[in-house]
Each structure stands twice: as C-alpha cells, then as structure tokens.
Design a protein around this nucleic acid. Structure first.
Lengths: 168, 168
DNA sequence: TATTGTTATACTCTATAACTATA
DNA sequence: TATAGTTATAGAGTATAACAATA
C-alpha cells in the first residue's frame, strides 16, 4: 500500500509530494478565481442597478440578443445563459413589459418564438453596453494586454475540459 | 473634441483604436472568466450536493473555520465570505443544528461569539475537503503548473485593484 | 453612541415538474 | 411520441433595516 514495484520509496514520496502540491496549487487557483470573480460580479451588479436599474441576468439576455439581430429562440437563450427554460420565460416577460424586447412568432414552427431587441431596447442596450464596457476595462486595467491574452487562452483550456462534448 | 494638440489625427485614430481594442479584449476576458467560473462552480455545487448533501456556502463556512482552529467571530465570517451578517447567522444555525459547528461565548466581549468546528465537524470536513480538492485538481488539470502560477498572480493583480484600501 | 449579532422581511434567481400546443 | 415554451411551486441565497444586548 505504501510501496510500488516500479520505483523506490524516495521516488514514490516525490510523486506523492508533487501530487499534493499540485492539488494545493489548483485549489489556491480556484479559490482565488472564485473570490475575484465574485467581487467583480458584485461590483458590476451594483453599478448596473444604481446606474440603469437593471439586473445582471436581464442585461445578459439583452447582450445575447444584441449579438444576434435575427433573434434567438427561448431554448437557445436557455443554453447560452446556462439556466433552465422557465427562467428565460420570466426574464423575457419582464423585458417585454418594459418594451425592451419582443417575441416574434416563428412562421415555420408555430410552437416557437424568436426573441429580439426592440428599437428602444437596442438603443437602451447600446448606451448601457458602452458604459459597462468601460467599467470592465477599468476593473481589468491592472493587467497588460499580453496577460489578458494569456488568461483568455487559459480560460478556454479550462472551459474545453469542462464540456468535452462539443455542441453539434 | 475630435482633435488633440499633441498629436496628428492619425495618431489620434490609432489611440482610439487601441482603446477600443483594449476595451473589447477586457470585455472578452471578463465574459470568459465569468462563464468559466460559473460552470466550474455549478459542477462543484452539484457534486457537493450529490456526494455530501451540503451546499457551497455551508462548505465555505466550514472551510473558513478549518483554517482558523481558534474560531472566527460572526463578523469575521461575514467579511471573509462576502455576505451580510444575517446570512452568516442562518448558515451557522443550520450547521449548529447538524452538530458540525458550535458557538463559543467570548469571555472578553459578551456580545460576541467564536464559531468553531466541532470534532464531528472537523472530521466530516476533512473527508469532504479531500474529495473536493481532488475534484478541483481534476477540473484544472488542463493547465500546466506554470500556467496556474501565472494565473494566480494575475488574479492577485485584479483583486488588489478592486480593493485598494487594504484591511487594517 | 457605536458595535455585535439576531430577527423579520422581501426580492432575485434558480431548478423541477406538470402542463399546452404544436411537430 | 417528442419538442418548444409556459406555468406553478419551492428553495437557496442575498440585502436591508429594525432590534436587543453589550461595549
């Protein structure tokens, strides 16, 4: 149990030590990543609420639609925002009441809708997005361009690891 | 408004272009960081619930106490977990009911408590923490040791930026 | 008067499951 | 029978503010 036949006890110890060190390093990284993300998220959440009276999920849904002018179906939004369908219905309802998004019936599939930004929604989001982007740039100004690129690449690695099955 | 006296229009354009590019890069980094963190967090949350029937905040509170065997006061826990006091009361109540933590009266300040792990809590946490650490190592195995160190350093930069006023 | 912790309340976000209407 | 979206419900987590006890 404490010995392997392919290595001396010393090698064995080294290996276990390295393993433990790696575990601790990964844990340290994860805890720092989590706390940093939470702090930034809270900061942005507060600013969005104070400046624009909008919540992060609502902002996110509008951001998704901004990137897809032809609209997205409820199921698509659910996948992209990583929440279940019922929640998308609720957020869409609220945004529709405020005349920021609209449901457009799909001619080919009468069960489905495409959700799109209204002109008012597009205008409102454009303004918010510009300010939001400046906030993010400010909060990340401590990193060099190269560092940001490295970090983007590393995060992609992690993400790929998480969902090995690519979406078809 | 569209001109500066220290540079030609061309330089000016370059500067604006760089600024926009930097904004986009920061935004891209933030969105990737947020989505990756959410995915890992959800994965860990689900595993904790399925394997140990414990939630992430409860696990986090126990983790804080593990690192401070002499106990932490409610206010300390509130700061460290980045949530308001009322929530700490609730989580502590639940853990105390399950005999995992205990409130110990502070002799010097009779308003205050120290929260500590019970022997049972320490034992339970030790087991959970070991498994949890292995999960994290697994989820972060896509990165090299050097990369992890780089990322830890970069995240520290970001965090420092966020709270320039150090805790005294 | 300020601080520690508790209580009460309300709100947002979330998942689950049953439901409808179409495919 | 399967899929797109809705509804209803319950629960976790959060913040706020009023409160009691103590400093």
């Amino acid at each position: 149990m404490s010995q392997h036949n392919h290595s001396s006890p010393a090698d064995n110890l080294d290996m276990e030590t390295r393993l433990t060190q790696d575990h601790h390093q990964s844990l340290k990284l994860w805890l720092r990543m989590l706390s940093t993300t939470v702090m930034i998220e809270n900061e942005i959440r507060n600013r969005l609420r104070n400046e624009f009276e909008i919540t992060l999920p609502r902002f996110d849904l509008m951001a998704q639609l901004e990137r897809h002018p032809d609209g997205l179906r409820m199921g698509e939004l659910s996948k992209r925002m990583m929440v279940t369908g019922g929640n998308i219905t609720g957020i869409t309802d609220q945004l529709e009441q405020e005349n920021l998004v609209q449901r457009v019936a799909d001619h080919k599939d009468r069960r489905a809708y495409s959700v799109k930004l209204t002109p008012a929604g597009r205008k409102a989001f454009k303004n918010m997005a510009q300010v939001h982007e400046a906030w993010v740039a400010e909060l990340f100004s401590g990193l060099e361009t190269d560092q940001k690129n490295q970090m983007i690449a590393m995060l992609s690695c992690l993400k790929t690891q998480l969902k090995p099955q690519a979406e078809s």
